[in-house]
Amino acid sequence: MPARDTMLRWIMAGPLALVAAVVTMASMPLWLPVGAAGIDNLIFPILLFPALWAVFFLYALIEARPVRGTAIITAIILTNSALIYSRF
């Protein structure tokens, strides 16, 4: 179904990639090592945000099967959200 695939790809590359990047950044301070000065877990997510977004965006375009891609990105969003939720 090419029409469905195209729509999924738009959703994946647009809102899903951005949300996935934001949520991954938000959960990173919880599991990244704090480092020598206790700030690595805070600065690395902020530093990596552009890269995370670019990776999710590119993945959305490159993934041959949009259904699988959407499922994977959604799973990443849910896992990270659950991680954040569990801390509050």
């Binding site: 938000a26 805070l42 902020i46």
Partner: peptide, 19 residues
């Protein structure tokens, strides 16, 4: 450049919220 734009506008508030 993307880092400098987003660090203050998105990164800092979101990471501050979680941490």
């Amino acid at each position: 450049g993307t880092f400098f734009s987003f660090a203050g506008a998105i990164g800092l508030p979101i990471v501050a919220m979680v941490a």
